[in-house]
Design a protein around this nucleic acid. Structure first.
Length: 421
RNA sequence: GCAGAGGUCGCCUAGCUCGGUAGGGCGCGGGCCUUGAGAGCCUGUGUGCGCAAGCAUACGGGGGUUCAAAUCCCUCUCUCUGCGCCA
C-alpha cells in the first residue's frame, strides 16, 4: 500500500514506477476511487451530523415529556437515507481497497531499470572458485552415491520437488540451522520461531495478490495459509500495533520451514533439492525508523555476506533491476553462490527494503512520546540461509576426488568435529 | 471439545442491571506557580475528512432490534479459569 498523499498529489511518481516495473495497472481507477472515497466521506459525515442533532433534540423532548412524533418520523427517513449512502460508500471502499492492495511498491532511484534479470547489476564478488583435478559431479549424483537424499520415494509419497534427507545430510542441515541461529544471535537478533500457517489478513499484509496464486499453499476449509517464508509471519507479528520509538530497530531472526508452490517454474531445476516445495530458512527481519532503513538494508546484506565468507562459499552480490524485483520491495540485493556442479552462480539470498509498504498494509506504527502522532515504520527482510540451496552448494563445491564431501571449517564443531561426510 | 468469566484511547479502569453526546487514572506534551526541581493547579494527548474552523468516527470483528446501541439480541473470534482429550 502506498501513501495516499502520493496518489493524490504526485501521481506521476506512480506512473514512472509502473513504467519502470512494466506493470499493467489501472492507476486511473485508483485515483478516481480515491477521489470518490473522499467525497463519500464528506457526504456521509454531513448526514450523520444532521442525525446526531436530531437525536439530541429527541432526547431533550423526551426528557421534557414533550411530543416527539414528527421529529421521530423525520429521523427515520434520515437513517434510511444514511444506510443507502453507506452502502454506496462501502462498494467504493471495496474497489479502492483491492486496487490499493494490488499496486506495487515505489522503486528506489538506485535500482537499474530493465525488463528482466539481464539488467541486474553485479556489485561485487567474493572467493576463489574451486578447482578440481577430477571429473566433478552435481549434487544429485553425490547425494545418491552417499545415500543422503531419497527423491524417488518422496515423489511417490508427496510428489515432484519433495525430498527425504537422510543420514549425515540431516545432520548437516541441522548444523546449518544451528550455526545460523548462533550467528544472528551474536549480532543481536531476537530468535523467533513463528507459526507456519497464518490467516489471510496477515498473509495479505506481506504478500501481493498475484503471489497468492503463484506461491502460497492454502489449507482447505480453513482461513489458513502455509507461510512461504517466516517473513510473512514476522511482518504480521506487530500488525495493528504502535511500537515505542525507543524499541526500534527490532531485529528478528526467524527460523521456519518454507512452503512454496513454484507454480511458474515448470521445467526449471526439475531434479534435486535446489528448487523444492519445502525447505528450511533462517531469515533476517527488521522494523526500523524510516530514516534508518537504507542503512539497515546495507547492514543486513553485509551480515549475509559475512556469513558466506565464514562458510567459505564463493559468491557475488547482485543489485536487482526493476523487472526482476518483487512487487513489495523498493530495492533488492541478491547473493548468488557458486554451484560447481552447475558451473554457475545461483540465487541463495534476497535482501529487500520494503519501506512503509508492508507497514501500511499491516498498520504497524511507532511513536516516541505517548502524546505524539504515529508514523508508519519501515520493514526489511533478508535471507540469511535457505538450507537446501546451501546443501547443494556445499556438496558440489566441497566434493572430493573419492566422492566424499568436506565439511566447511565453521560447521565442523556442529558436526562433532568431523571434517568429512 | 464442554462450561464459566472477560476484550472500552499507548497502558490501567468506570459505564452495561434499567439504551439517550464514553468518564477517570497512569504515561507523555504545553502552560501557571517556583531561583531550580518536585508537588499542586490548568490544558492537551485515538482515527478519518478538511487549508482551517470544525465535523464525523471509535468500546474485539460482523449482523440484528430501535428514532437512537459500549449498553438489548444473534454470530464469529481471541484471552483467562475449570473439566475433557492429546504429543
Amino acid at each position: 500500500m502506498l501513501d495516499p498523499k502520493i496518489i493524490k498529489e504526485r501521481p506521476e511518481i506512480i506512473k514512472d514506477m509502473l513504467k519502470a516495473r512494466s506493470v499493467d495497472f489501472d492507476l486511473d481507477g485508483l485515483v478516481e476511487s480515491d477521489q470518490r472515497r473522499r467525497r463519500y466521506i464528506i457526504e456521509t459525515d454531513e448526514l450523520r451530523k444532521k442525525k446526531n442533532l436530531m437525536a439530541r433534540e429527541i432526547s431533550q423532548k423526551k426528557k421534557a415529556k414533550e411530543d416527539a412524533t414528527s421529529i421521530l418520523a423525520e429521523m427515520k427517513d434520515v437513517s434510511v437515507e444514511l444506510t443507502r449512502l453507506e452502502g454506496r460508500q462501502e462498494e467504493n471502499e471495496k474497489i479502492h481497497a483491492s486496487l490499493s492492495l494490488a499496486i506495487p511498491n515505489l522503486v528506489d532511484e538506485s535500482v537499474p531499470v530493465g525488463p528482466d534479470k539481464r539488467s541486474n547489476k553485479e556489485i561485487k564478488r567474493w572467493g576463489c572458485l574451486p578447482c578440481f583435478d577430477f571429473k566433478i559431479k552435481d549434487h544429485i549424483d553425490i547425494s545418491e552415491n552417499l545415500d543422503l537424499v531419497d527423491l524417488e520415494r518422496a515423489a511417490k509419497v508427496a510428489g515432484a520437488r519433495f525430498y527425504y534427507l537422510k543420514n549425515d545430510l540431516v545432520r548437516l542441515n541441522q548444523s546449518l540451522i544451528h550455526y545460523a541461529l548462533d550467528f544472528l544471535s551474536k549480532k543481536g537478533y531476537l530468535l523467533i520461531q513463528p507459526p507456519y500457517m497464518i490467516n489471510r489478513k496477515a498473509m495479505q499484509g506481506a504478500v501481493i495478490a498475484d503471489d497468492f496464486e503463484e506461491a502460497i499453499y492454502k489449507i482447505e476449509q480453513e482461513d489458513l495459509y502455509m507461510i512461504g517464508t517466516s517473513e510473512h509471519a514476522m511482518a504480521a507479528m506487530h500488525s495493528d500495533e504502535i511500537i515505542e520509538g525507543r524499541d526500534l530497530p527490532l531485529r528478528y531472526a526467524g527460523v521456519s520451514p518454507c512452503f512454496r508452490k513454484e507454480a511458474g517454474a515448470h521445467g526449471r531445476d526439475q531434479k534435486g533439492i535446489f528448487r523444492v516445495h519445502q525447505f528450511d530458512k533462517i531469515e533476517q527481519f527488521a522494523f526500523t525508523r524510516p530514516e534508518d532503513s537504507w542503512q539497515e538494508h546495507e547492514m543486513m546484506l553485509g551480515i549475509a555476506e559475512e556469513f558466506y565468507q565464514q562458510l567459505e562459499i564463493p559468491h557475488r552480490v547482485m543489485l536487482l533491476s526493476t523487472g526482476d524485483m518483487g512487487k513489495v520491495s523498493a530495492k533488492t540485493y541478491d547473493i548468488e553462490a557458486w554451484m560447481a556442479g552447475q558451473n554457475a552462480y545461483r540465487e541463495i539470498v534476497s535482501c529487500s527494503n520494503c519501506l512503509d509498504y508492508q507497514s501500511r498494509r499491516l498498520k504497524i506504527r511507532f511513536r516516541d512520546k505517548t502524546n505524539e502522532g504515529t508514523q508508519y515504520l519501515h520493514t526489511l527482510n533478508s535471507t540469511l540461509i535457505a538450507t537446501s540451496r546451501i546443501l547443494v552448494s556445499i556438496m558440489e563445491n566441497f566434493q572430493t576426488k573419492d566422492g566424499h564431501i568436506r565439511i566447511p571449517q565453521a560447521l565442523q564443531r556442529y558436526m562433532g568435529d568431523r571434517k568429512e561426510i
